[in-house]
Simulated scan of single mutants.
Amino acid sequence: MSKNIEIVQSYFNAVARGDFETVDRLFADDIVWHQPGTGVQSGIYNGKAEVFAHLGNFAQWSNGTFAIDTIEYLTDNRDLVSASIHFKAEKNDQSIAMKGMDLLRMENGQIKEVWLFSEHIEDEDAFWNYASNK
């Protein structure tokens, strides 16, 4: 297993445990996060403060139910690591569950940039738009 895959696996493990001290160490200070879609969650987030606020919104808007429940595989190509995942969240009478692909760019042993891709981005947009208003 490559060092970059080990770092990304550590990131996913830390997120699953709610260990954001470890996530903080694994993120570069000037991390850039690309969230797809046109919903309330979508956009580009720059730096740890913006990224952690963004991730906090997912927890808040889903009453803490947002989870990456499966990592099908991780693979790398030099400084890029791709993760085939499945994620889910619930809020009141609404839920979402779908596959996604995360692409992480590594630099100096840290996660420098993240691009997310969702299986059905329109459904994801609709869910987060609903969840953020309830």
Score class of each variant (00 low, 15 high):
Ala16Pro: 02
Phe127Ile: 07
Ile71Tyr: 08
Glu119Ser: 11
Ser132Lys: 14
Asn46Gly: 00
His86Phe: 15
Ser84Met: 15
Val8Ile: 07
Lys88Glu: 13
Gly64Arg: 05
Ala59Val: 13
Arg78Val: 06
Ser42Lys: 00
Asn4Pro: 02
Gln110Trp: 00
Asp30His: 08
Val15Ala: 13
Val8Tyr: 01
Trp128Thr: 06
Ile85Thr: 15
Asn77Ser: 11
Ile5Lys: 03
Asp30Ala: 02
Ala67Lys: 14
Ser82Gln: 11
Ile7Phe: 00
Asn4Asp: 11
Ala16Cys: 02
Lys112Glu: 06
Asn57Gln: 15
Lys134Tyr: 12
Ala67Tyr: 03
Lys88Gln: 14
His54Gly: 04
His34Arg: 06
Val114Gly: 01
Ile31Glu: 06
Met1Gln: 09
Ile111His: 01
Asn63Gln: 11
Leu116Thr: 10
Met101Ala: 11
Ala89Gln: 06
Glu122Val: 11
Lys134Thr: 14
Leu116Gly: 10
Ala83Gly: 12
Gly18Met: 02
Val8Met: 00
Leu55His: 11
Thr70Leu: 12
Glu119Arg: 09
Ala97Lys: 15
His34Tyr: 11
Trp61Gln: 05
Trp33Gly: 00
Val32Tyr: 05
Thr75Gln: 12
Ile85His: 10
Val8His: 02
Phe27Asp: 05
Asn108Met: 02
His54Tyr: 14
Ser62Glu: 04
Asp69Tyr: 15
Ala126Arg: 15
Phe117Glu: 07
Val23Gly: 00
Asn57Ala: 11
Gln35Arg: 07
Gln110His: 01
Asp24Thr: 08
Arg105Thr: 05
Gln35Pro: 01
Gln9Thr: 02
Tyr130Lys: 08
Ile111Arg: 01
Ala89Met: 14
Trp115Lys: 05
Leu26Trp: 03
Ile96Asn: 03
Thr22Tyr: 01
Ala49Pro: 00
His86Cys: 11
Leu80Met: 10
Asp69Ser: 13
Phe127Arg: 07
Ala16Gln: 13
